[in-house]
């Protein structure tokens, strides 16, 4: 109805196409270059797929075994980090939200703080801490999960908090308590299902961050996917680039899945629970002028 006026602040199709086209093209070049690089046939020139087929037929054995081990390490670390988020962060956030609302600011500052401390600085201090940790429980790779738990804290906190803001946790838990539920079933059967979206998004982001982490692992001499890639790139750049391309596309699909997760549910949630959606910060372009 107000189509003409809205165009006054949104760009027209041509401008949008032009900007996205140019920037998209520039950003596509390095990725294309990576693909081109992996298809090179060697000194005689020309292109073929032999590096890709070799890699997959070889089944990542022999000299690529370390990459597989490193991938295993990274996946294990990702699981450990997600476990820390689920078992520590989620209950803490819920407890603060329901019982100690006055602590919310403190928790927020604590959780966002790691973003302002560079990983490279954290490493300087972590080195002595980890030498103590190594004496106590050994220098297994899994100990890094604690450090990663800190680095993913801001991302996970944001994802869960934005979901928490849109759900009336207090009413839900009081209703469940009135109906005779214990705290355990309030948490597991009422709150967690309602916060499923935020928790999943937080967990996915944690996985992406952990799989992409390099700084801490490399300077503490632990092996994870990224440090192994660097090692491989020193003697076989082609394989390193192929593995990077695969890792990038997997991460892209993972994050695309998060996005879908959020968007598919939103329309349904808003028609189902109108009072909740009115309080949600992500308002759709409905007339919201009535809000104070």
């Amino acid at each position: 109805m107000s189509g003409d006026i809205r165009v006054a602040h949104a760009p027209n199709r041509l401008t949008r196409g032009l900007i996205l086209g140019v920037v998209g093209l520039v950003f596509a070049v390095p990725i294309l270059a990576m693909v081109e690089f992996t298809l090179r046939r060697g000194l005689e020139g020309g292109y073929d797929l032999h590096r890709w087929t070799d890699l997959f037929q070889g089944g990542l054995t022999g000299e690529y075994k370390p990459v597989l081990v490193a991938l295993g390490n990274s996946v294990g670390l990702a699981i450990g980090t997600v476990a820390i988020i689920l078992l520590l962060l989620v209950p803490t956030m819920l407890l603060v939200h329901i019982r100690f609302p006055q602590l919310r600011r403190v928790l927020e500052i604590l959780c966002i703080l790691p973003i302002s401390i560079p990983a490279i600085v954290l490493v300087v201090g972590l080195a002595p801490v980890f030498s103590v940790v190594a004496q106590l429980v050994g220098s297994g790779v899994w100990t890094l999960a604690f450090a990663y738990g800190i680095t993913v804290l801001p991302f996970a906190y944001r994802a869960i908090q934005s979901n928490l803001d849109g759900v009336d946790v207090r009413t839900l838990s009081e209703a469940a308590r009135t109906l005779g539920a214990g705290w355990g079933s309030v948490l597991l059967r009422v709150l967690v299902p309602n916060l499923r979206r935020g928790i999943l998004a937080g967990a996915f982001i944690a996985v992406a961050v952990v799989l992409g982490e390099f700084t801490i692992a490399s300077l503490l001499n632990r092996v994870n996917l990224q440090t192994a890639l660097v090692v491989v790139s020193k003697n076989d750049p082609y394989t390193a680039v192929i593995l990077s391309l695969i890792a990038l596309s997997v991460a892209f699909l993972l994050l695309l899945a998060i996005g879908r997760l959020g968007t598919v549910r939103r329309p349904r949630a808003q028609t189902a629970r109108t009072p909740v959606s009115a309080a949600s910060p992500t308002s759709t372009p409905t007339p919201t002028g009535a809000r104070p």
Binding site: M34, F37, G212, Q226, S244, A251, F252
Partner: peptide, 21 residues
Amino acid sequence: SLSSVLAQFGGVMLAFAFVAT
């Protein structure tokens, strides 16, 4: 999603990309 991948996941792999470019 693309932005998140490149902004948070890239790191080492972006270095490879630019060596290839």
